[in-house]
Amino acid sequence: MKIGNSPDGSASPTKAEQRPAARKPDAAVTTDTVRQTASAPAPSAQVAISSAAQLAANAGPDDGSFDAAKVARITQAISEGKFTVNANAIADKLVANAQELLSARANKH
């Protein structure tokens, strides 16, 4: 079962489905008019990419980290109700990530 889907199959519409259909532009509006009125917004925030995100971005799709057999085993275990979650491992990773974020923040100040 996917997250957000109800078991009875009646899923709520997605945001794209909820939006009204796009209105066709008026014939009087030309691409030159649009180019003149549209401009790129000024940057409003600075963004820093973490070292983990940089590693993930640089890894690419062919780095061999995807194990289809493992995914199949986990999928089967979930469908059979045999999948168990190691709460201690999850807690350890959350604490480690929080410590990394806090130390990175402390180094900035």
Results as ranks from 00 to 15, higher is better:
Gln18Ala: 14
Arg73Gly: 01
Gln18Ile: 01
Asn58Trp: 10
Gly64Met: 11
Arg23Ser: 13
Ala68Pro: 01
Asp67Phe: 01
Ser50Asn: 09
Asp32His: 12
Ile49Glu: 12
Thr30Leu: 14
Gly60Glu: 10
Asp92Ile: 04
Ala21Trp: 03
Ser65Lys: 08
Ala21Thr: 08
Ser65Gly: 13
Pro61Lys: 14
Ser65Gln: 06
Arg35Asp: 03
Gly81Ser: 10
Asp92Phe: 07
Leu101Trp: 13
Ala104Met: 15
Leu94Trp: 11
Pro13Lys: 09
Ala53Phe: 09
Pro25Gly: 00
Ala77Met: 02
Asp92Ser: 10
Ala57Thr: 05
Gln99Phe: 15
Ile90Ala: 02
Ser51Ile: 14
Arg23His: 11
Ala104Tyr: 12
Asn97Ala: 10
Ser51Val: 05
Glu80Trp: 01
Ala87Gly: 09
Ser50Phe: 03
Ile90Trp: 07
Pro25Leu: 01
His109Gln: 12
Ala57Asn: 14
Gln18Asn: 07
Asn86Cys: 08
Ala40Tyr: 14
Asp63Arg: 06
Ala28Pro: 00
Arg73Asp: 12
Asn5Leu: 04
Ser44Asn: 09
Ser103Cys: 06
Ser65Asn: 05
Met1Ile: 07
Arg73Met: 05
Lys70Arg: 10
Val29Met: 10
Ala38Asn: 15
Ser79Gly: 12
Asp92Gly: 11
Ser79Ile: 08
Lys93Trp: 00
Ser10Glu: 04
Gly9Val: 02
Lys93Thr: 13
Gln54Asn: 15
Pro25Thr: 05
Asn58Lys: 09
Ala28Trp: 11
Val34Gly: 05
Ala11Leu: 01
Ile74Gly: 02
Ala38Gln: 15
Asn97Gln: 02
